[in-house]
Amino acid sequence: MLGEGIIKGMAATAKNFLGSYVQEERLTTVQYPEERLPQKEAARNFPFLVYDGNDWQKGLRCVACQICEKECPPKCIYIVKDAIKKPDYIGKLQLQPKVFDIDTSVCMSCQICVEVCPFDAIKMDVEFELSTDDRFAKLLLKKEDLAKPNKYYQRIHPSEAAEVDGRLAAEKAKAEAKAKADAEAKAKAAVASPKPPPASALKTPAIPSPAPALAK
């Protein structure tokens, strides 16, 4: 019969229309910004820098190794190394960035900087309401805009942060145990022979221990 398909189609539309009064899940529109969906834990937008403790300058995990700057596909990261070193979370002296800029108008939110970072220093933020009319002051993020506490990271990506924290704590414990063992060995050596220990025993390893961040 001619027109049968049209009647069938209209019935399907009518079912959808009337169904929206009965079934909640047929109302799919979310009235943003009054209504908001919960964010997914894996959500990502732009990177930020993690710091431990309360002082962002002291606790910044970034050691200015410039790996993210090299690997960033659109080259939106700009780093200048500082001449002054600062101790990291296990007390080892590390470099720090003098300048760390991310141009979020260039960044394409690909997360490659996070993946290649061996120090868990850069992570993805979930903040997305960033519209502004000031391109240079608001979208070119400086070190102080980027630095956010580890607590914030734990809040936005709980399970990921728990894994990172566990790994860092294990590394710290290992480093402390090693330092203790070294000290004991040194003390023993000092007792056994009165002459000073060779210089090589005092040297701390110059290369930072590689974090197993990439093994996952």
Binding site: K40, E41, A42, A43, R44, M108, S109, C110, Q111, I112, E115, M124, K216
Partner: peptide, 27 residues
């Protein structure tokens, strides 16, 4: 797309697969 976002973090620009596997496991 909601499934993609939960898995990869982005709805359309997923950037999920890596050479020799995938970036992260299923949540």
């Amino acid at each position: 797309l909601d499934l993609f976002e939960a898995l990869t973090g982005a709805r359309m620009m997923c950037n999920y697969m890596r050479f020799g596997g995938c970036r992260c496991d299923l949540p």
